Simulated assay, not measured.
Amino acid sequence: MIHLKGVMKNYDVGGRQVAALRNIDLTIRKGEIFGIIGHSGAGKSTLIRTINMLERPTAGEVVVDGVEMTKLGTGKLQLERRSIGMIFQHFNLLSSATVADNIAFPLRLAKLPKEEIARRVEELIGLVGLTGHGSKYPAQLSGGQKQRVGIARALATNPKVLLCDEATSALDPQTTGAILSLLLDINKQLGITIVLITHEMNVIRTICDRVAVIDGGEIVEEGPVTDVFLKPQHRTTREFVAQVSDVAAIGLETSGSAAAGNRTLVRVTYIGEQTYQPVLYETMRETNVPFVILQGTVSKLKDTPYGQLVVELQGQEGGAEQAIALLRGRGLDVEVIQHG
């Protein structure tokens, strides 16, 4: 659906070239919700804006639904942009226009008939949950309602792709949850491909299918959210996961009940239906290894349940190794934190 190949973006700063993006290779599949996460200044906003050519890359290719965007002239680019909607952190609404007129704005630019515009606006107002608010002005709306208007406006021309530029960063946690739920519903109902950038890992784990981590203008980690969240490889990724991880770094803490040298600390990760099954208990009973659960959580990554436990295995080392092997054989991920 979206392919970025060798994308680079340089800015001229004081007569010298500063790289904002470095050799970005990225593929975003049709119909998925793809997240891009990074710290401020990492290049994530520049990256998402290259998709609709609001930022023209210095080098590389940007292909959206089979169209090479970097080769389009002004006229054709404007036409292609109708298939790429965009919502913004600070809403970017017309303050002197009503909700209905804000949503109608791109339709009027496309010179659609008045009757069609009216029908489409009414349909979108209902879709985003703003029925009865069409005649209000932005100043009369809450932040969440303003963002709903922004989403409706972005969807006005029936785009194939929806770009979300920090769409929830200006909202409180409860409103953020409502907006993420709306985006998830839109994705499911319309099959639209959603690309969102954020600096909040909670946004990624709530609605995204896959994620790319950007640092210093480079993609440093990429993959399914379940893999990246539960097994982060890069330092930056681990920092973001730590923001929302319910299982804190355990360090060298133990229960204190095992003799020195006769304990093994492990982190056990469950994914899917095994999250709700007594696999740990059954394994320890089978191997006769005493254990203590020091920390634990059960949660979800989008629609996928997962669990993480930090467990102290007690007794002889051979018994712990046997238990770990059995757990791994039953499909669980087991990370040894410390021996002895």
Rank of each mutant, 00 (worst) to 15 (best):
L184A: 15
A325E: 12
L184P: 04
V289F: 01
N187F: 00
A154W: 03
R81A: 13
K114A: 15
T176S: 09
K30Q: 12
A170I: 06
A59G: 03
M201N: 09
P224N: 10
S257E: 15
I48H: 00
G216P: 04
V225H: 11
V334E: 08
R56P: 03
L107H: 14
S257L: 15
L130V: 01
L155H: 00
D185R: 15
G319F: 00
T175L: 07
T236C: 04
G38D: 01
K160A: 08
L155F: 00
G177K: 14
L332M: 09
A320P: 05
I151T: 07
I271L: 13
S169Q: 02
V128N: 00
E335V: 14
R119P: 03
G143R: 02
N187H: 01
Q78I: 11
D303V: 14
R49W: 04
L141S: 09
T168M: 05
A20H: 10
G75C: 06
E68C: 07
L184R: 15
R22W: 03
G296M: 12
N158Q: 13
T269W: 02
P290A: 09
D303L: 14
Q140M: 06
A242T: 10
V64E: 05
V18N: 11
I324P: 08
L130Y: 01
G85R: 08
N92A: 14
I214Y: 04
G318F: 09
G177L: 09
V279I: 10
G315C: 01
A156G: 06
I293R: 10
L72E: 05
P278G: 10
S96M: 14
E166R: 03
A20C: 11
E239W: 12
Q314V: 07
N288F: 12
K111W: 05
I87Y: 10
K76E: 15
A258D: 06
M284C: 05
G216C: 08
I271F: 07
T254N: 11
G223N: 06
V311R: 00
H133A: 13
T58A: 09
I250T: 13
Q314P: 01
F91S: 07
N202D: 14
K231A: 15
K76G: 11
G143F: 01
G307W: 13
I51S: 02
V18K: 12
V289D: 02
V62Y: 01
G315T: 03
L163F: 04
A258H: 08
M69L: 00
M201S: 10
Q308G: 10
Q243Y: 07
R267K: 14
Q140I: 04
E55Y: 03
T269V: 06
T168F: 02
G43F: 07
P138V: 06
T198R: 09
I204C: 05
V228W: 07
E166I: 08
V244W: 09
G217Q: 12
I204T: 07
T297V: 15
E335G: 13
V128R: 01
H39M: 14
